[in-house]
Nucleic acid binder design. Structure first.
Length: 571
RNA sequence: UGGGGUGUCGCCAAGCGGUAAGGCAACGGGUUUUGAUCCCGUCAUUCCUAGGUUCGAUUCCUAGCACCCCAGCCA
């Protein structure tokens, strides 16, 4: 971040906000549980990029570890090699760090525990609590029962311990075909909780694993792996989302039936729903694969990589996560909360610059042709310590097309009209004397005159000029491409589409507007990738890091300025 | 109609028996060389509903209602 001021940035963050999980931990601590330790973990599956929903979980888990002087492990839940890749592992590590959180030592993997997991499975078998089942997937589905009817016991359920041990050992050594056998927990096929109807613990899959290679053809399931991984790491509070609530009896069952000292407490909270976007990894993957967006880091994506590229700061995202809170209630957070948090953060730290997005040529007829001036403009109206920069000024400048109309449309209109005056930000007051029109009817040029006695002061005769517009000196202007982003979906809940339609039907076709011929003030020639500025009267813009050095620089609009004018019916 | 959850302002969310915090949004007003920022003010006699307990209930009890999740060899 350019001109970052740590103190200023830090002030936008708040003191720890209490939530029901922190209250539970307080109670545990007060009761002397876990010898006063608080250990959490963030357990992503490396099958996609991290998004804003993960940010909520990261801030929760790492935030609690920080505030309770414990620690939080980053642990990849890598038990399904078919969907996981090293690229995702790398992106996740990068994004967690970028968000501002760090783990001790190396990142951990559930696959680190494959051997121990296997030994614990043997222990379950020895107790008669797990068996090798040869039913097909289809058979297993039909015998599982329904929500209201009990399931039917598998014919393989009563195998002897010796036979189960033999079979399971041979499953590991690769004697059986993929999918031909699974290891199942022997619990209760009539349980009203379907997760307890003899759930699968292990399946056979000959897939190269990104961490363990071809060492295993036997992979453990999430419900079996997660509690043991947590326990092996000494996790005290295992935080997950609501849909795992009815898996908790299984989580506890596993730990209650093996020899292990630690028994973490699983606590569930509701996942984040953000209006006008989606946070389903499956759907985000589809947007990328089917090229609805330009990649996981497309600035329209709710991924941390996309937000970073768009210009959102980690501080703003953390503050947002503080503000949405943590509860068990289903929620639907308005985009304006996120946007306001980003604006608030950027307003404080971003230097101001001027940029003309839709250029309209202006000639100042009474300004001497051979004259040039170097004006001085403060980088930030409220923070003088951020310094100032120089603004060239001459007879020819660019202003934005939206800042001129021939005739005043209403009495509160403050921009330039023919015969009217307006203040050029940081410069003089000009009057529009005439305008030229092209064959198409489009205005091609404005002929204006300036009041030389209005630099840094109001007119001596006391006349009031209300409007202020931004501009860029023509000769030294820097060419740029500017990309304006709008919400990716056209409705608050993109899942809500007509019968038979897919969520992609809700994609906003105007989510990206590219302006290829924009002019930035001269000082921006020295900007560098990733820097964010406020383009006055337009919004916050971040110089795109992915653009090649020799091309015209690309700027991504992070967020617009609040605009109470257009909200009232202005344009 | 099985099991597990949740219901406090348009959105998020405090509150844990003592008489409804805060943020966002919205709406007024002031300052302003960004229609930005900033400042000031307004915004739930009411907490899903109905009963009950109590001097007193959003908080306790009972009965309803609404919504979400679960039948992957995904996580």
């Amino acid at each position: 971040m350019n001109q970052a001021n740590e103190a200023a940035a830090a002030s936008s963050e708040r003191q720890p906000v209490k939530n029901f999980i922190r209250h539970l931990i307080d109670a545990d601590l007060a009761a002397g549980k876990n010898a006063g330790a608080v250990v959490t973990r963030f357990p992503p599956e490396p099958n996609g990029y991290l998004h804003i929903g993960h940010a909520k979980s990261i801030c929760l888990n790492f935030g609690i570890a920080r505030d309770y002087r414990g620690h939080c492990n980053l642990r990849f839940d890598d038990t399904n090699p078919e969907k996981e890749t090293p690229e995702f592992v790398a992106s996740i590590e990068r994004d967690v760090n970028w968000l501002g959180f760090h783990w001790q030592g190396r990142a951990l993997y559930a696959s680190d525990y494959f051997e121990q997991l296997y030994q614990f499975a043997l222990e379950l078998i020895d107790q008669g609590l797990a068996y090798v089942c040869e039913q097909s997937g289809e058979e297993m589905r039909t015998t599982r029962g329904t929500l209201t009817e009990a399931g039917v016991n598998s014919p393989y359920r009563e195998r002897s311990v010796a036979e189960n041990r033999d079979l399971f050992t041979r499953m590991r050594s690769g004697e059986f075909a993929d999918g031909s056998r699974v290891l199942r927990a022997k619990i209760d096929m009539a349980s009203p909780n379907i997760n307890l109807r003899d759930p699968v613990l292990y399946r056979i899959r000959r897939t190269l694993h990104h961490q363990t290679g071809s060492e295993w053809c036997l992979y453990p399931m999430y419900d079996y792996t997660h509690p043991i991984s947590d326990a092996l790491e000494g996790i005290t509070h295992s935080l997950c989302t609501l849909e795992f609530e009815d898996h908790r009896p299984l989580y506890d069952w596993v730990l209650n039936h093996i020899t292990i000292a630690c028994h973490p407490q699983q606590i569930e909270f509701s996942r984040l729903n953000l209006q006008y976007t989606i946070v389903s990894k499956r759907k985000l993957t589809q947007l990328v694969r089917e090229k609805y967006v330009h990649g996981w880091d497309d600035p329209r994506m709710p991924t941390l990589a996309g937000m970073r590229r768009r210009g959102y700061t980690p501080e703003a995202i953390r503050t947002f996560c503080d503000r949405i809170g943590v509860t068990k209630a289903d929620n639907s957070v308005e985009m304006s909360l996120l946007e306001n948090t980003v604006r608030e953060d950027l307003n404080l730290r971003a230097s101001r610059r001027m940029a003309v997005l839709k250029p309209l040529r202006v000639v100042i007829s009474n300004y001497p042709e051979d004259q040039r001036e170097q004006l001085t403009a403060a980088n930030h109206p409220q923070r003088p310590e951020l310094g100032s920069r120089t603004l060239p000024f001459s007879r020819e400048i660019w202003i934005d097309r939206d800042d001129f109309v021939p005739e005043r449309p209403n009495k509160s209109f403050k921009r330039l009209v023919k015969g009217g005056e307006v203040r050029l930000r940081h410069a003089y007051i000009i009057r529009c004397d005439a305008y030229e029109v092209e064959s198409e009817g489009e205005i091609s040029r404005l002929i204006c005159s300036y009041d030389a006695d209005t630099l840094g002061k109001n007119p001596a005769d006391g006349r009031k000029v209300k409007g202020v517009i931004h501009w860029v000196e023509a000769e030294e202007a820097v060419s740029a491409e500017v990309r304006l982003y709008d919400r990716l979906f056209d409705r608050p809940n993109p899942e809500q589409v007509a019968e038979g339609e897919h969520f992609t039907a809700a994609i906003n076709p105007a989510s990206l507007t590219t302006l290829a011929h924009c002019y930035l003030e001269a000082s921006l020639a020295a900007s560098s990738a990733g820097e964010t500025y406020q383009f006055e009267r337009e919004g916050y813009f971040c110089r795109d890091p992915e653009t090649t050095a020799d091309a015209v620089a690309v700027w991504n609009r992070t967020v617009t300025l609040r605009d109470s004018w257009s909200e009232q019916g202005g344009d």
